[in-house]
Nucleic acid binder design. Structure first.
Length: 121
DNA sequence: ATTCTGACAGCAA
DNA sequence: TTTGCTGCCAGAA
């Protein structure tokens, strides 16, 4: 069990806000949360959301090159790619085709994390 | 308690 | 341009 406002919890809150059909990357989330060098941990956090119900949109997070680096953690074969395809996001050879157009940056789209946290108190 | 290992990314060489 | 090291946080051994 983690603390309520642990880094992990924050990651989840941000990922939940990623719009349908849009994607972002690990680094962007880390930066948004104020620890720019924790991109790695974002992935680690998502790893704990496997097989969660309702489906946690972890498939909307890829690495900065648009590659589905977390693919293997979705069990089966191309589950991650298929989830994306079902949202209209084209994937070719583990890579998102129109990455730039689909890109969603939490830093631009969401209010500052500080404001957000206040809101929930 | 200490050490290791990640779904990454930035920077030094 | 490519490779390698390091930071960051949490959990497992």
């Amino acid at each position: 069990m983690e603390k309520e406002n642990s880094f992990f919890q924050r990651v989840y809150k941000v990922v939940e806000k990623i719009p349908y059909g849009r994607i972002t990357n690990y680094g962007a989330i880390a930066r948004y949360l104020g620890s720019a060098r924790s991109a790695r941990m974002v992935g680690w956090a998502l790893n704990q959301t496997k097989f969660q119900v309702p489906v946690f949109p972890a498939h909307r997070v890829v690495n900065r090159q648009g590659l589905l680096s977390g693919k293997k953690h979705f069990g089966g074969h191309d589950t991650m790619a298929q989830l994306l395809l079902s949202e209209g996001v084209q994937v070719v050879e583990n890579k998102i085709v129109d990455f730039a157009d689909r890109y969603w940056d939490p830093i631009k789209e969401l209010p500052p994390i500080s404001v957000w946290l206040d809101n929930e108190k």
